[in-house]
Design a protein around this nucleic acid. Structure first.
Lengths: 240, 240
DNA sequence: AAGTGGTCTAGACCACGGC
DNA sequence: CCGTGGTCTAGACCACTTC
Protein backbone atom coordinates (compact mmCIF):
# COMPACT_ATOMS: atom_id res chain seq x y z
CA UNK A 1 0.00 0.00 0.00
CA UNK A 2 1.58 3.23 -1.14
CA UNK A 3 -0.47 6.37 -0.87
CA UNK A 4 2.48 8.67 -1.23
CA UNK A 5 1.51 11.58 -3.50
CA UNK A 6 4.18 13.34 -5.46
CA UNK A 7 5.14 16.69 -3.97
CA UNK A 8 2.78 16.29 -1.04
CA UNK A 9 3.70 17.04 2.53
CA UNK A 10 5.11 14.01 4.33
CA UNK A 11 2.67 12.38 6.70
CA UNK A 12 4.82 13.01 9.75
CA UNK A 13 4.82 16.73 8.97
CA UNK A 14 1.06 16.79 8.60
CA UNK A 15 0.78 15.21 12.02
CA UNK A 16 3.24 17.71 13.51
CA UNK A 17 1.35 20.64 12.03
CA UNK A 18 -1.91 19.33 13.35
CA UNK A 19 -0.43 19.18 16.84
CA UNK A 20 1.26 22.56 16.55
CA UNK A 21 -2.00 24.11 15.45
CA UNK A 22 -3.80 22.72 18.46
CA UNK A 23 -1.14 24.22 20.69
CA UNK A 24 -1.06 27.59 18.96
CA UNK A 25 -4.83 27.90 19.02
CA UNK A 26 -4.83 27.25 22.75
CA UNK A 27 -6.78 24.00 22.50
CA UNK A 28 -3.73 22.33 24.00
CA UNK A 29 -2.01 24.04 26.90
CA UNK A 30 1.39 23.41 28.49
CA UNK A 31 1.28 20.21 30.51
CA UNK A 32 -1.65 18.76 28.56
CA UNK A 33 -1.40 15.23 27.25
CA UNK A 34 -0.81 14.93 23.52
CA UNK A 35 -2.33 11.99 21.61
CA UNK A 36 -0.21 8.88 22.02
CA UNK A 37 1.68 7.30 19.14
CA UNK A 38 -1.01 4.68 18.76
CA UNK A 39 -3.84 7.21 18.78
CA UNK A 40 -2.09 9.38 16.21
CA UNK A 41 -1.33 6.39 14.01
CA UNK A 42 -4.97 5.34 13.96
CA UNK A 43 -6.32 8.87 13.56
CA UNK A 44 -4.04 9.74 10.65
CA UNK A 45 -4.02 6.31 9.07
CA UNK A 46 -0.25 5.83 9.36
CA UNK A 47 2.00 3.26 10.96
CA UNK A 48 3.34 3.54 14.47
CA UNK A 49 6.83 4.41 13.23
CA UNK A 50 5.49 7.40 11.36
CA UNK A 51 3.49 8.70 14.28
CA UNK A 52 6.55 8.12 16.42
CA UNK A 53 8.73 10.10 14.01
CA UNK A 54 6.36 13.04 14.25
CA UNK A 55 6.42 13.09 18.05
CA UNK A 56 10.15 12.45 18.42
CA UNK A 57 10.83 15.35 16.09
CA UNK A 58 8.55 17.69 18.02
CA UNK A 59 10.25 16.63 21.25
CA UNK A 60 13.64 17.43 19.75
CA UNK A 61 12.39 20.91 18.90
CA UNK A 62 11.15 21.37 22.44
CA UNK A 63 7.49 21.65 21.48
CA UNK A 64 6.53 18.60 23.51
CA UNK A 65 8.11 16.49 26.22
CA UNK A 66 8.00 12.73 26.22
CA UNK A 67 8.00 10.68 29.40
CA UNK A 68 8.66 6.99 29.07
CA UNK A 69 5.66 5.01 30.23
CA UNK A 70 3.61 8.12 30.94
CA UNK A 71 2.90 9.91 27.68
CA UNK A 72 3.67 12.96 25.59
CA UNK A 73 2.94 16.39 27.00
CA UNK A 74 2.91 19.94 25.72
CA UNK A 75 6.16 21.60 26.81
CA UNK A 76 6.10 24.77 28.90
CA UNK A 77 6.49 27.95 26.86
CA UNK A 78 10.09 28.41 25.83
CA UNK A 79 12.14 31.28 27.08
CA UNK A 80 14.16 32.48 24.16
CA UNK A 81 17.78 33.10 24.94
CA UNK A 82 20.43 34.40 22.61
CA UNK A 83 17.81 35.32 20.11
CA UNK A 84 18.78 37.54 17.21
CA UNK A 85 16.24 40.34 17.31
CA UNK A 86 16.10 43.59 15.45
CA UNK A 87 16.08 46.71 17.57
CA UNK A 88 12.43 47.13 16.68
CA UNK A 89 11.59 43.62 17.83
CA UNK A 90 13.48 43.99 21.09
CA UNK A 91 11.79 47.19 22.05
CA UNK A 92 8.28 46.29 21.02
CA UNK A 93 8.61 43.02 22.96
CA UNK A 94 9.29 45.17 26.01
CA UNK A 95 6.28 47.31 25.24
CA UNK A 96 8.37 50.41 24.64
CA UNK A 97 7.54 53.15 22.20
CA UNK A 98 10.41 53.29 19.75
CA UNK A 99 11.84 55.74 17.32
CA UNK A 100 14.72 55.70 14.86
CA UNK A 101 16.45 58.69 13.39
CA UNK A 102 18.38 58.25 10.17
CA UNK A 103 21.60 60.19 10.73
CA UNK A 104 23.10 59.45 7.35
CA UNK A 105 23.00 56.95 4.55
CA UNK A 106 25.72 56.79 1.94
CA UNK A 107 27.83 54.62 -0.30
CA UNK A 108 31.39 53.99 0.87
CA UNK A 109 34.13 52.03 -0.82
CA UNK A 110 37.08 52.28 1.51
CA UNK A 111 35.92 50.06 4.33
CA UNK A 112 38.25 47.26 3.35
CA UNK A 113 38.05 45.25 6.51
CA UNK A 114 34.28 45.34 6.67
CA UNK A 115 34.02 44.39 3.00
CA UNK A 116 36.27 41.44 3.71
CA UNK A 117 34.12 40.34 6.62
CA UNK A 118 31.13 40.40 4.30
CA UNK A 119 33.02 38.15 1.93
CA UNK A 120 33.44 40.90 -0.69
CA UNK A 121 36.54 42.23 -2.40
CA UNK A 122 38.22 44.86 -0.19
CA UNK A 123 37.26 47.84 -2.33
CA UNK A 124 33.62 46.85 -2.78
CA UNK A 125 31.03 49.58 -2.59
CA UNK A 126 28.99 49.35 0.59
CA UNK A 127 25.77 50.96 1.70
CA UNK A 128 26.40 52.61 5.05
CA UNK A 129 23.41 53.38 7.23
CA UNK A 130 23.83 55.33 10.43
CA UNK A 131 20.96 55.60 12.85
CA UNK A 132 20.20 56.74 16.37
CA UNK A 133 17.68 54.56 18.16
CA UNK A 134 15.42 55.89 20.86
CA UNK A 135 13.05 54.35 23.34
CA UNK A 136 10.45 56.71 24.73
CA UNK A 137 12.08 59.95 23.48
CA UNK A 138 15.42 59.01 25.00
CA UNK A 139 18.28 58.04 22.68
CA UNK A 140 19.67 54.67 23.75
CA UNK A 141 21.80 53.45 20.89
CA UNK A 142 23.89 54.45 17.91
CA UNK A 143 24.05 51.94 15.09
CA UNK A 144 25.97 51.85 11.86
CA UNK A 145 25.38 49.02 9.44
CA UNK A 146 26.94 48.04 6.16
CA UNK A 147 25.63 45.94 3.30
CA UNK A 148 26.80 45.24 -0.23
CA UNK A 149 25.79 48.19 -2.42
CA UNK A 150 25.77 45.94 -5.42
CA UNK A 151 23.42 43.46 -3.88
CA UNK A 152 21.14 46.04 -2.26
CA UNK A 153 21.15 49.09 -4.55
CA UNK A 154 17.75 50.38 -3.41
CA UNK A 155 18.61 50.39 0.26
CA UNK A 156 20.12 53.84 0.31
CA UNK A 157 16.76 55.40 -0.49
CA UNK A 158 14.76 53.22 1.86
CA UNK A 159 12.85 54.89 4.71
CA UNK A 160 14.95 53.21 7.39
CA UNK A 161 13.77 55.59 10.04
CA UNK A 162 10.33 54.09 9.60
CA UNK A 163 10.82 50.45 8.66
CA UNK A 164 12.98 47.79 10.23
CA UNK A 165 16.03 46.77 8.22
CA UNK A 166 15.31 43.14 9.04
CA UNK A 167 11.77 43.40 7.72
CA UNK A 168 12.94 45.25 4.62
CA UNK A 169 15.49 42.57 3.81
CA UNK A 170 12.99 39.81 4.32
CA UNK A 171 10.08 41.36 2.46
CA UNK A 172 11.74 43.28 -0.34
CA UNK A 173 14.89 41.28 -0.93
CA UNK A 174 13.73 37.79 0.01
CA UNK A 175 16.61 37.47 2.43
CA UNK A 176 15.93 35.70 5.70
CA UNK A 177 18.46 36.27 8.44
CA UNK A 178 19.48 33.25 10.44
CA UNK A 179 22.14 34.09 13.01
CA UNK A 180 24.80 36.57 13.98
CA UNK A 181 28.29 36.35 15.38
CA UNK A 182 28.78 39.17 17.83
CA UNK A 183 31.82 40.70 19.46
CA UNK A 184 31.09 42.65 22.58
CA UNK A 185 33.25 44.97 24.62
CA UNK A 186 33.06 48.30 26.38
CA UNK A 187 34.10 51.75 25.27
CA UNK A 188 33.55 55.41 26.04
CA UNK A 189 31.41 58.01 24.33
CA UNK A 190 33.55 60.34 22.25
CA UNK A 191 32.47 63.86 21.43
CA UNK A 192 30.29 62.98 18.44
CA UNK A 193 28.57 59.99 20.01
CA UNK A 194 28.01 61.92 23.21
CA UNK A 195 26.12 64.56 21.24
CA UNK A 196 24.10 62.06 19.26
CA UNK A 197 23.10 60.09 22.35
CA UNK A 198 22.76 63.19 24.54
CA UNK A 199 25.13 61.90 27.21
CA UNK A 200 28.34 63.30 28.72
CA UNK A 201 31.61 62.49 27.03
CA UNK A 202 33.28 59.55 28.72
CA UNK A 203 30.00 57.77 29.40
CA UNK A 204 30.48 53.98 29.29
CA UNK A 205 28.93 52.25 26.31
CA UNK A 206 28.42 48.65 25.38
CA UNK A 207 29.90 48.10 21.94
CA UNK A 208 28.62 45.31 19.77
CA UNK A 209 29.99 44.39 16.37
CA UNK A 210 27.68 42.01 14.57
CA UNK A 211 28.17 39.96 11.47
CA UNK A 212 24.71 38.79 10.48
CA UNK A 213 24.28 35.74 8.26
CA UNK A 214 21.39 34.76 6.03
CA UNK A 215 19.77 31.34 6.04
CA UNK A 216 22.05 30.48 3.15
CA UNK A 217 25.08 31.01 5.39
CA UNK A 218 26.10 34.20 3.64
CA UNK A 219 27.43 37.17 5.63
CA UNK A 220 24.88 39.84 4.74
CA UNK A 221 25.04 42.69 7.24
CA UNK A 222 27.85 44.11 9.31
CA UNK A 223 26.64 46.28 12.14
CA UNK A 224 28.31 48.19 14.92
CA UNK A 225 26.20 49.41 17.77
CA UNK A 226 26.95 51.54 20.80
CA UNK A 227 24.45 51.12 23.59
CA UNK A 228 23.96 53.34 26.60
CA UNK A 229 24.77 51.42 29.70
CA UNK A 230 21.99 51.13 32.19
CA UNK A 231 19.48 51.62 29.43
CA UNK A 232 20.64 48.46 27.79
CA UNK A 233 21.80 45.16 29.17
CA UNK A 234 22.46 42.19 26.99
CA UNK A 235 21.14 38.87 28.24
CA UNK A 236 22.64 35.65 27.02
CA UNK A 237 22.67 32.04 28.04
CA UNK A 238 25.76 29.91 27.65
CA UNK A 239 26.16 26.18 27.88
CA UNK A 240 28.99 24.02 28.99
CA UNK B 1 13.87 -12.66 15.66
CA UNK B 2 14.66 -10.81 18.84
CA UNK B 3 18.27 -10.60 19.91
CA UNK B 4 17.62 -7.79 22.35
CA UNK B 5 19.62 -8.42 25.52
CA UNK B 6 18.39 -6.99 28.77
CA UNK B 7 20.34 -3.92 29.84
CA UNK B 8 22.48 -3.91 26.72
CA UNK B 9 23.27 -0.82 24.73
CA UNK B 10 20.74 -0.21 21.96
CA UNK B 11 22.00 -1.17 18.52
CA UNK B 12 21.74 2.34 17.16
CA UNK B 13 24.00 3.59 19.95
CA UNK B 14 26.57 0.91 19.25
CA UNK B 15 26.63 2.03 15.64
CA UNK B 16 26.98 5.67 16.65
CA UNK B 17 29.82 4.90 19.01
CA UNK B 18 31.62 2.91 16.33
CA UNK B 19 31.41 5.90 14.00
CA UNK B 20 32.38 8.39 16.68
CA UNK B 21 35.39 6.31 17.55
CA UNK B 22 36.55 6.25 13.95
CA UNK B 23 36.26 10.03 13.85
CA UNK B 24 37.98 10.60 17.20
CA UNK B 25 40.84 8.30 16.32
CA UNK B 26 41.40 10.20 13.08
CA UNK B 27 40.57 7.26 10.84
CA UNK B 28 37.71 9.39 9.53
CA UNK B 29 38.42 13.04 8.77
CA UNK B 30 36.04 15.94 8.10
CA UNK B 31 34.54 15.57 4.65
CA UNK B 32 35.10 11.82 4.49
CA UNK B 33 32.23 9.60 3.48
CA UNK B 34 30.63 7.64 6.31
CA UNK B 35 29.23 4.17 5.62
CA UNK B 36 25.80 4.38 4.05
CA UNK B 37 22.66 3.19 5.80
CA UNK B 38 22.70 -0.02 3.80
CA UNK B 39 26.35 -0.71 4.53
CA UNK B 40 25.89 -0.08 8.25
CA UNK B 41 22.78 -2.25 8.35
CA UNK B 42 24.61 -5.15 6.79
CA UNK B 43 27.81 -4.68 8.82
CA UNK B 44 26.00 -4.50 12.16
CA UNK B 45 23.29 -6.98 11.33
CA UNK B 46 20.43 -4.56 11.84
CA UNK B 47 17.58 -3.30 9.72
CA UNK B 48 17.77 -0.20 7.57
CA UNK B 49 15.56 1.77 9.96
CA UNK B 50 17.96 1.15 12.80
CA UNK B 51 21.03 2.17 10.81
CA UNK B 52 19.06 5.20 9.67
CA UNK B 53 18.22 6.11 13.24
CA UNK B 54 21.89 6.03 14.15
CA UNK B 55 22.90 8.35 11.32
CA UNK B 56 19.96 10.74 11.66
CA UNK B 57 20.79 11.14 15.33
CA UNK B 58 24.45 11.86 14.63
CA UNK B 59 23.42 14.39 12.00
CA UNK B 60 21.16 16.11 14.52
CA UNK B 61 24.12 16.40 16.88
CA UNK B 62 26.24 17.89 14.12
CA UNK B 63 28.75 15.02 14.05
CA UNK B 64 27.94 14.16 10.44
CA UNK B 65 26.15 15.84 7.56
CA UNK B 66 23.73 14.06 5.31
CA UNK B 67 23.21 14.99 1.67
CA UNK B 68 20.21 13.53 -0.09
CA UNK B 69 21.36 11.38 -2.97
CA UNK B 70 25.02 11.85 -2.18
CA UNK B 71 25.81 10.26 1.15
CA UNK B 72 26.72 10.93 4.76
CA UNK B 73 29.91 12.85 5.51
CA UNK B 74 31.95 13.71 8.58
CA UNK B 75 31.05 17.27 9.59
CA UNK B 76 33.77 19.93 9.84
CA UNK B 77 35.07 20.45 13.39
CA UNK B 78 32.57 22.38 15.44
CA UNK B 79 33.26 25.88 16.51
CA UNK B 80 31.87 26.27 19.98
CA UNK B 81 29.92 29.42 20.48
CA UNK B 82 28.35 30.64 23.66
CA UNK B 83 30.25 28.11 25.62
CA UNK B 84 30.41 28.49 29.35
CA UNK B 85 34.10 28.37 30.16
CA UNK B 86 35.95 29.11 33.33
CA UNK B 87 38.50 31.87 33.15
CA UNK B 88 41.20 29.23 33.30
CA UNK B 89 39.72 27.34 30.38
CA UNK B 90 39.32 30.46 28.27
CA UNK B 91 42.88 31.58 28.71
CA UNK B 92 44.54 28.23 28.32
CA UNK B 93 42.54 27.64 25.14
CA UNK B 94 44.15 30.83 23.85
CA UNK B 95 47.56 29.60 24.91
CA UNK B 96 48.02 32.37 27.46
CA UNK B 97 49.88 32.07 30.69
CA UNK B 98 47.41 32.80 33.43
CA UNK B 99 47.49 33.86 37.01
CA UNK B 100 44.88 34.52 39.67
CA UNK B 101 45.31 36.56 42.79
CA UNK B 102 42.94 35.98 45.67
CA UNK B 103 42.07 39.45 46.92
CA UNK B 104 39.74 38.33 49.66
CA UNK B 105 37.52 35.48 50.70
CA UNK B 106 34.91 35.86 53.38
CA UNK B 107 31.46 34.95 54.62
CA UNK B 108 28.77 37.55 54.10
CA UNK B 109 25.14 37.46 55.11
CA UNK B 110 23.70 40.72 53.96
CA UNK B 111 23.65 40.21 50.21
CA UNK B 112 19.92 39.71 50.11
CA UNK B 113 19.45 40.08 46.40
CA UNK B 114 22.22 37.70 45.50
CA UNK B 115 20.97 35.14 48.02
CA UNK B 116 17.56 35.41 46.42
CA UNK B 117 19.01 34.84 42.96
CA UNK B 118 20.66 31.71 44.27
CA UNK B 119 17.30 30.52 45.50
CA UNK B 120 18.23 30.99 49.17
CA UNK B 121 16.54 32.89 51.95
CA UNK B 122 17.56 36.56 51.81
CA UNK B 123 19.76 36.46 54.90
CA UNK B 124 21.61 33.28 54.00
CA UNK B 125 25.32 33.14 54.65
CA UNK B 126 27.32 33.27 51.43
CA UNK B 127 30.94 32.59 50.62
CA UNK B 128 32.33 35.62 48.82
CA UNK B 129 35.46 35.17 46.76
CA UNK B 130 37.16 38.13 45.17
CA UNK B 131 39.93 37.59 42.66
CA UNK B 132 42.00 39.49 40.15
CA UNK B 133 42.72 37.57 36.99
CA UNK B 134 45.81 38.15 34.92
CA UNK B 135 47.01 36.99 31.56
CA UNK B 136 50.71 37.26 31.02
CA UNK B 137 51.46 39.46 34.05
CA UNK B 138 48.79 41.93 33.04
CA UNK B 139 45.60 42.14 35.12
CA UNK B 140 42.60 41.78 32.83
CA UNK B 141 39.65 41.08 35.05
CA UNK B 142 38.17 41.50 38.50
CA UNK B 143 35.77 38.80 39.60
CA UNK B 144 33.63 38.36 42.67
CA UNK B 145 31.63 35.22 43.11
CA UNK B 146 29.15 34.04 45.69
CA UNK B 147 28.04 30.56 46.71
CA UNK B 148 25.97 29.17 49.55
CA UNK B 149 28.19 28.98 52.64
CA UNK B 150 26.02 26.23 54.02
CA UNK B 151 26.40 24.08 50.94
CA UNK B 152 30.10 24.79 50.42
CA UNK B 153 31.61 25.29 53.88
CA UNK B 154 35.13 24.32 52.85
CA UNK B 155 35.35 26.77 49.99
CA UNK B 156 36.56 29.69 52.05
CA UNK B 157 39.81 27.88 52.76
CA UNK B 158 40.33 26.57 49.24
CA UNK B 159 43.42 27.67 47.30
CA UNK B 160 41.41 29.52 44.69
CA UNK B 161 44.41 31.38 43.42
CA UNK B 162 45.74 28.04 42.27
CA UNK B 163 42.80 25.89 41.31
CA UNK B 164 39.83 26.69 39.11
CA UNK B 165 36.53 27.14 40.94
CA UNK B 166 34.81 25.07 38.25
CA UNK B 167 37.22 22.19 38.72
CA UNK B 168 36.93 22.40 42.48
CA UNK B 169 33.16 22.23 42.37
CA UNK B 170 33.20 19.31 39.98
CA UNK B 171 35.90 17.27 41.69
CA UNK B 172 35.40 18.01 45.36
CA UNK B 173 31.69 18.71 45.52
CA UNK B 174 30.39 16.51 42.69
CA UNK B 175 28.64 19.49 41.14
CA UNK B 176 28.68 19.71 37.37
CA UNK B 177 27.86 23.11 35.96
CA UNK B 178 25.56 23.18 32.97
CA UNK B 179 24.79 26.72 31.84
CA UNK B 180 24.76 30.33 32.88
CA UNK B 181 22.43 33.25 32.36
CA UNK B 182 24.50 36.37 31.87
CA UNK B 183 23.69 40.05 31.96
CA UNK B 184 26.20 42.24 30.21
CA UNK B 185 26.66 45.97 30.15
CA UNK B 186 29.39 48.57 30.34
CA UNK B 187 30.71 50.57 33.24
CA UNK B 188 33.71 52.60 34.35
CA UNK B 189 36.60 51.72 36.62
CA UNK B 190 36.16 53.34 40.00
CA UNK B 191 39.08 54.13 42.24
CA UNK B 192 39.42 50.69 43.81
CA UNK B 193 38.99 48.71 40.60
CA UNK B 194 41.40 51.00 38.79
CA UNK B 195 44.06 50.19 41.36
CA UNK B 196 43.41 46.47 41.30
CA UNK B 197 43.48 46.31 37.51
CA UNK B 198 46.27 48.88 37.18
CA UNK B 199 44.30 51.11 34.82
CA UNK B 200 43.28 54.77 35.00
CA UNK B 201 40.03 55.66 36.71
CA UNK B 202 37.25 56.04 34.16
CA UNK B 203 38.55 53.22 32.00
CA UNK B 204 35.66 51.45 30.25
CA UNK B 205 34.96 47.94 31.51
CA UNK B 206 32.72 45.16 30.33
CA UNK B 207 30.56 44.09 33.24
CA UNK B 208 29.12 40.61 33.35
CA UNK B 209 26.79 39.27 36.00
CA UNK B 210 26.46 35.53 35.80
CA UNK B 211 24.06 33.15 37.43
CA UNK B 212 25.53 29.71 36.90
CA UNK B 213 23.33 26.62 37.09
CA UNK B 214 24.23 23.03 37.81
CA UNK B 215 23.10 20.10 35.70
CA UNK B 216 20.26 19.68 38.16
CA UNK B 217 18.96 23.12 37.25
CA UNK B 218 19.98 24.63 40.57
CA UNK B 219 21.47 28.14 40.71
CA UNK B 220 24.85 27.47 42.26
CA UNK B 221 27.18 30.41 41.67
CA UNK B 222 26.57 34.11 41.26
CA UNK B 223 29.51 35.93 39.76
CA UNK B 224 30.20 39.49 38.78
CA UNK B 225 33.14 40.22 36.56
CA UNK B 226 34.69 43.42 35.30
CA UNK B 227 36.80 42.96 32.20
CA UNK B 228 39.28 45.37 30.73
CA UNK B 229 38.10 46.45 27.34
CA UNK B 230 40.44 45.73 24.51
CA UNK B 231 41.97 42.90 26.52
CA UNK B 232 38.67 41.13 26.53
CA UNK B 233 35.95 40.81 23.95
CA UNK B 234 33.05 38.51 24.41
CA UNK B 235 32.06 36.47 21.39
CA UNK B 236 28.58 35.07 21.11
CA UNK B 237 26.37 33.63 18.42
CA UNK B 238 22.68 34.34 18.34
CA UNK B 239 19.96 32.70 16.33
CA UNK B 240 16.71 33.96 14.94
C1' DA C 1 -2.97 -4.86 34.20
C1' DA C 2 -3.30 -1.45 30.88
C1' DG C 3 -1.20 2.01 28.38
C1' DT C 4 2.84 4.55 27.15
C1' DG C 5 7.21 5.48 24.92
C1' DG C 6 11.81 3.02 23.21
C1' DT C 7 13.79 -0.14 20.16
C1' DC C 8 13.67 -2.97 16.14
C1' DT C 9 12.51 -5.85 11.78
C1' DA C 10 12.38 -6.75 6.74
C1' DG C 11 10.91 -5.15 3.56
C1' DA C 12 8.82 -1.03 0.11
C1' DC C 13 8.77 3.20 -3.12
C1' DC C 14 10.31 7.90 -3.98
C1' DA C 15 13.56 11.89 -4.89
C1' DC C 16 17.96 13.27 -5.51
C1' DG C 17 23.10 13.30 -6.87
C1' DG C 18 26.88 12.02 -9.55
C1' DC C 19 28.78 9.43 -13.20
C1' DC D 1 22.08 4.42 -14.50
C1' DC D 2 23.02 3.18 -9.70
C1' DG D 3 23.57 4.30 -5.04
C1' DT D 4 22.16 7.56 -1.68
C1' DG D 5 19.14 9.44 1.79
C1' DG D 6 13.83 10.36 2.89
C1' DT D 7 9.53 8.41 3.84
C1' DC D 8 6.65 4.66 5.20
C1' DT D 9 4.39 -0.03 6.52
C1' DA D 10 2.54 -3.51 9.81
C1' DG D 11 3.76 -5.61 12.74
C1' DA D 12 7.00 -7.16 17.25
C1' DC D 13 8.96 -7.15 22.15
C1' DC D 14 10.78 -4.48 26.01
C1' DA D 15 10.86 -0.94 29.82
C1' DC D 16 8.48 2.17 32.25
C1' DT D 17 4.51 4.68 34.66
C1' DT D 18 0.13 4.75 36.53
C1' DC D 19 -3.66 2.73 38.65
Amino acid sequence: MVIHVNGAEPAYRRIQNAIRQRIDSGRLKPGDVVDSERELAKAHGVSLMTARHALADLAREGVVERRHGAGTFVAPPKIHFNKLLSYTEQMTSLGLAIHSKLVSSSIVSREHEIAARLGLTPTSRLVRIERVRSAGDEPVAHEVCYLSAEEFPTLIDAPLDKISLFKLLERECGIVLAYSDDEIDATLADHRIAELLDVPRGEPLLRMRQLIFSTKGRATVYAMGLYRSGRHTLRIRRFR
